[in-house]
Amino acid sequence: MKWERVRIPLMLGPTMAIITILFFGSLGFGFLQSLGYQPQIGNTGFSLDAYYAVMFSERSASQFWPGLALTLWVASASTFISAALAVGLSLLLRRTFFGKKLAVFLFQLNLPIPHLVIAVGMLLLFAQSGLVARFAGELGIIDAPRDFPVLTRDPYGLGIILAYIWKEVAFFGIIVMAVLQSLGEDYEAVAQSLGANRWQRFRTVTLPLIMPGLMSASIIVFAFTFGTYEVPRILGVQHPKMLPVLALEYFLNPDLNARAEGMALSIIIAVIVFALVFLYMYVSARTVRKS
């Protein structure tokens, strides 16, 4: 009995230890660096100078606040649009039609493709010198490739959002399709039988039923798109830069003193993501309690 009680913790122990050391270790180390603790260059004191410098110094504030706004916009738009598209496509793919297996395969094809490849693909396709612009020019839809709308390396992050949508729709799709499959169509049949039209069924039955899965996936996608730098590094502009790109540049700066600012920025990103996730969990728990 005693053995049974400790067996599972013991079995989980090695994995938990690795996760704890890697996660909390790196987070702790990064946090110490963000406080200026870098013994290798003789800084052994602690201060919030790096945080202040990133957010309020004349040099960095003009980068930080527009970058924060852009990051929030890109992460929110990517998450929302990917989720909406995935729900629509999953509902379409639930129906029986000729070539359904091929359609599902194509829908999920993006999943194993790295974000970097997607970003480069976006550039090749949708840049003003890209394939789509050239074809549009050849077909006479636009006069010259330069007339093609700026969809990559644009100040609004449209290219970045498109790349994330391209990639994350498949991720959302897998989750939504699994939820829809496990639910079946009987709940919707009940609603239909009670008089609900297609839109009413979607709004009052399908959406509330898939919402828990959709929200979990949204948290993952939002946190990822908020904190990752590959796609914005390739498809973004010099100003404003998304926060993860700024953090990377601080970190790669040959001046080791800038590393504290890079770490401070990374910690800020982590805090914002955690805060938004907790806010979501608090709001959803409250909504459940209230309803």
Partner: peptide
Amino acid sequence: PERRGAVMVFQNYLLFPYMTIAQNVGY
């Protein structure tokens, strides 16, 4: 189906789990 006025009650009840009983009945 939604305009036929033929309402079906399923074997496994299928009450909407995220609604109260009043909301289910009044749906």
